[in-house]
Design a protein around this nucleic acid. Structure first.
Lengths: 340, 340
DNA sequence: GCTTTAAATGACATCGATTGCGTAAAATAA
DNA sequence: TTATTTTACGCAATCGATGTCATTTAAAGC
């Protein structure tokens, strides 16, 4: 099955003109007489001519298309960020194509390369939890593909980055829990090598320190798959509650972990088991939970917008950009019943 | 900023061979001597040569890429369906690019055309709630672009379709509510012209009829934006409760409406206001709600898989397919506290 | 040693659109 | 009327890869 489309050649043949003339007529060139232009335009309209973007991409080496790679759509942070990106892209005349890495390094590499070689003009990416080797991105970046990182950034590649103040988010949340009187605050977090994991942990530790609460390493649990595998979260929880000093509060890093953790807690403990929850989450549904969830919410839409703006800046810049900045947004903590 | 990549020409120049020879060597043609092949392959590897897919698409008129258009990622049904699609596509050697229509007809048209003209080999689409005119799809379909519809199908275009038994889903849910003793079951649903809206309404009515409960038109509320605009759901609810006979249960059609409805109800009525809820939803979080939500759940992943399988069948079929079928999946109703 | 044949490679057109350069015809200037 | 400038268009190369056809070279056949 093939899909045929009208070409410049078809028009040229029909009107007894050369391809060049038709092309120029369509682009309203001054070299073409009004009469011919009219003729061409009318016929083009009649047969519903559209320039073949593939041919254009080949010729012009750009596609007016921007590639986005995120771990998962089902994570609200990412779907909201994508919405922000789309809003900017569309108003700037770019199209957007989106893929998910499913937190898999291999899938990420395939998606990134597929997009790059399909002539996206630039790439917005939040790396997968598995990604520790950045060669696939470095290679493209060195060859001049504009890349902007957001949220899960890659420190060692020098380009624009857009993040949330993860340190402060974790710090504020932990401080809130401390003020509420919780002493043994567990932190269930994502893979250790991730930059945001480190920042959040730092925020958590600093809040403890500032409040003179000793840091207890056993209260930190890493989920190497970022909570994608339910079992790892279950293991994390089990291991937390096996210890002599049991946590009275849990701070979770990441939408996925937050929402996977709750049913597990419900399953493992009776409902009256009093423990405080707080987590990073951009879900709109946490208000409906029992108890309603205190969350650290990131301005995902705005982060997406900023990242797209930066990317378009690079793409449209005449000369290579040397000085890159990292834009940081503030997260907000929203207090509900789960930390009362 | 431009992104340069090694080409066959580069290899040919370097090795003093013609482009044809290099091309053939890379494709391991029998016409090329082992020696030359080795030479070419080694150099190609060294400079990290990759065939330019744009050039290939132009030549071969296919891209090994499949386009997916959904209303929104944040709707779990769609993100799960996409996961199913991806799983099949990847194992069949296709890449996938995804766009959202945001329930906007205009955006849908732009996205569909962008993909078609960018040489996707086929299209999987669930139309936006606004879409009443199908010319953009008909046009492409007539020109031979393989299209498969899923969930929100277009009746009048003859191709493979994959749906859920919406009639039965609504019938079963309504029957459950009736059995639980509810008499005034409201139905808040999506735009009236949508096929699935009609089917769900039919299921609802049939259940009433089978149980000898009179159908009350004022209990039906349409949300023309599918719940995307909070206000329309609020208006729907307000208008339901303005009537003399107030509903004792609400059946909602669609993830969005379900999750938007609940906070509104909370806001409008006191918590002890006893009313039953049941809705179509594929969210994983409805168990955590207060009360936990009875839902009609669709096998989204399997629907996605089936749709992708059908599409690949069309793409890879040697002769045009004449006989199209519609694959129907069963939804399941999951009973929780909200209908007790 | 000359012809036949197979093996290995090159030249060129193609996909669709753009663009620099060349040129015929028409318009203007001399 | 001849020279010069415009106007309006065509030719051909280009982007990267493929494939048809032709050509070179070497090996085999007689």
């Amino acid at each position: 099955m093939k899909f045929e489309s009208a070409t410049i050649k078809d028009i040229a043949l029909k009107l007894n003109l050369s391809k060049s003339t038709v092309s120029r007529a369509l682009r309203d060139s001054y070299e073409i007489s009004e009469q011919t232009k009219k003729l061409v335009l009318e016929y083009a309209k009649k047969i519903n001519y559209r320039p073949n973007p593939i041919a254009l991409s080949l010729k012009e080496r750009r596609s007016h298309t921007i590639g986005i790679v995120v771990p998962e759509f089902s994570n609200n942070f990412f779907s909201q960020a994508i919405n922000g990106m789309e809003s900017i892209a569309y108003s700037s005349g770019y199209n957007v194509i989106i893929t998910q890495s499913h937190e898999s390094y291999d899938r990420e590499v395939i998606n990134v390369e597929h997009m790059a070689y399909r002539s996206v003009d630039g790439l917005l990416i939040s790396v997968s939890v598995e990604t520790e080797n950045y060669d696939h991105l470095k290679k493209l970046h060195e060859r001049g593909l504009p890349i902007v990182f957001f949220d899960r950034i890659v420190e060692e590649i020098d380009t624009y980055k857009v993040v949330c103040d993860n340190f402060k988010g974790a710090y504020d949340a932990t401080t809130h829990l401390i003020k509420k009187g919780f002493k043994n605050i567990a932190h269930i977090t994502s893979a250790e090598q991730m930059f945001i994991t480190q920042k959040r942990l730092e925020g958590y530790r600093k809040a403890l320190e500032d409040n003179k609460i000793p840091f207890q390493p056993h209260l930190i649990q890493y989920c190497v798959h970022g909570g994608k595998i339910t079992k790892e979260v279950e293991d994390a929880i089990t291991s937390l509650f096996k210890k002599k000093i049991k946590p009275d509060a849990i701070l979770s890093a990441g939408d996925r972990i937050t929402t996977v953790m709750l049913p597990i807690m419900k399953k493992l403990f009776s409902t009256d088991h009093k423990i405080a929850y707080m987590g990073f989450s951009n879900s709109d549904l946490t208000d409906l939970f029992c108890p309603s969830l205190s969350v650290i919410r990131q301005p995902a839409f705005e982060i997406g917008q900023a990242a797209m703006e930066q990317l378009i800046t690079i793409i449209e810049s005449k000369r290579p950009i040397k000085e890159f900045t990292t834009k940081t947004f503030e997260s907000s903590i929203i207090i509900k019943e789960s930390t009362n």
